[in-house]
Amino acid sequence: MGLPVSHILMVTGFALVLIGFWGMLGHRNILRIIIGFSLINTGLHLVMVATGYVTGGTAPIIDKALSISEATVRSVDPIPAALVVTAIVIGFSVTAVMLAFAIRIHDARKTLSIDALTESKW
């Protein structure tokens, strides 16, 4: 018996979050910062899905493999999955707006480096 599956998933998710943070803090290019944000997003989704896993559970879809009476004992928690669908949509929306802003900034400054935007820096 090796490492539990949800632990592997959770550690992977947290590692992705850390890589994303490192990318956001270490890079000056706006596109790379957005990629870092997406990595954080994906990592957190993985962590959320991992918390829904129940040992030995299967997908919460009733079919030949999982009868209605078995559903409450042999299936994983459906709530985190439903929440993550919401989170993915919101993450997509934020990324799309950020990319649109990046395009506007590139139009205005002809560069994607955040060093060009110092007037709002304190």
Binding site: P4, H7, P60, A71, T72, S75, D77, P78
Partner: peptide, 16 residues
């Protein structure tokens, strides 16, 4: 974190 062994009451309600 330790892997969950049982479902929460809310999840069980949804699943039924």
């Amino acid at each position: 974190y330790s892997e969950r062994q049982t479902l929460s009451p809310l999840a069980r309600h949804y699943l039924t």
